[in-house]
Amino acid sequence: MEKIPNMRRFVTWLAAALIGFSSPVLAEDHPVVVELFTSQGCSSCPAADAYLATLADREDVIALALHVDYWDYIGWKDVFADPRFTKRQKAYAIAAHRHSVYTPQMIVNGVEHVVGNHPVDVAALIAKHAKTRHPISLALKEQAGVLSISASSDQVMPTPVIVQLVRYVPEREVAIHAGENAGKKLIYSNIVTEWHRLGDWDTNGPFNLQTQVQGDEPIVVIVQAPGPGPIIASARLR
């Protein structure tokens, strides 16, 4: 969510040239990105959290749990909550001309808004977006703490697209001692810990970027229209 001053300039190289690469993850598989906005202080959320866990291991889905902070006041502070994720959810609501936000909510590929504990509806939207044609090809490679991102598009987008880096923790168990879920011990999956805006790409030519990454958390790169709008490409290393 970090801002880049000039939206239309190409992203410059951020690290030294790579010496050898791991096998790339390619966006030809076009995983569908499912963002779950959730909270440990929400009694309706555990069912959605459990459903997200079933999506977490799928290769055709990138499931991401973004814990919001606006339920912290009712007795339990979510240990994963980040105000930036609340801001992202509100931005989605504004882009969709909605007047409020709620949990649990899932956003599928940046455009579909659905109640997070309605798995049949979510599954239908995943299937729908799995069939969507994607104009952008995206590849990731990582070696010795350096991530290489390359992308190309077979058409020029009407506005520059945003390239974002996401990291997440695959699983954590939390004992809830207060609030609506008091007394429960809950398991959370794919907990987002970082969401960075790497730069903007006008799609007139190839996109190439190298950046430092630390730690063993899975790496996700998302290419998205501004707004936030539709997710046009995504890829993951884990």
Rank of each mutant, 00 (worst) to 15 (best):
A16V: 00
L18Y: 05
I19T: 07
G20M: 00
G20Y: 01
F21R: 07
S22Y: 06
S22H: 04
S23P: 05
P24N: 03
A27M: 04
A27D: 06
E28V: 14
D29T: 13
D29G: 03
H30T: 12
H30Y: 10
P31E: 08
P31T: 11
V32G: 01
V32M: 01
V33C: 03
V34P: 02
E35M: 10
F37L: 06
T38M: 12
T38E: 13
T38P: 14
Q40L: 07
G41E: 10
C42A: 05
C42I: 02
S43Y: 04
A47C: 07
A48Q: 13
D49A: 10
D49W: 05
A50F: 05
Y51I: 13
Y51Q: 11
T54L: 00
L55R: 10
L55Y: 06
A56L: 07
A56Q: 09
A56K: 09
A56Y: 02
A56G: 11
D57L: 10
R58V: 13
E59G: 14
A63W: 04
L64G: 13
A65S: 15
L66R: 15
L66F: 15
H67A: 13
D69R: 14
D69C: 13
D69A: 10
D72A: 06
D72N: 11
D72S: 03
D72E: 08
Y73V: 02
G75F: 04
W76G: 12
K77N: 13
D78N: 07
V79P: 10
A81I: 01
D82C: 10
D82S: 09
P83A: 02
R84M: 13
R84V: 05
R84K: 14
F85I: 06
T86Y: 05
K87S: 09
K90R: 15
A91K: 14
A93R: 13
A93K: 12
A93M: 13
H97G: 07
R98G: 03
H99E: 15
H99C: 14
H99F: 12
S100C: 04
T103D: 12
P104G: 03
P104F: 07
Q105I: 03
I107M: 04
I107D: 07
I107K: 05
V108A: 07
V108T: 08
N109T: 13
N109P: 05
G110A: 08
G110R: 12
E112T: 15
E112Q: 14
V114S: 09
V114K: 11
V115C: 03
V115N: 08
V115G: 05
G116M: 08
G116I: 05
H118P: 04
D121Y: 00
V122W: 01
A123D: 14
A123P: 08
A124I: 12
A124W: 01
L125V: 08
L125T: 09
L125E: 09
I126K: 02
I126H: 04
I126C: 01
A127Q: 12
H129Q: 14
A130W: 02
K131P: 00
T132L: 04
R133Q: 07
H134T: 00
H134N: 06
H134F: 00
H134E: 07
P135V: 10
P135E: 08
I136A: 12
S137Q: 14
L140I: 09
E142T: 02
Q143N: 11
Q143E: 04
Q143Y: 01
A144Y: 04
V146M: 00
V146C: 00
V146H: 00
L147D: 02
L147W: 02
S148I: 02
I149Q: 10
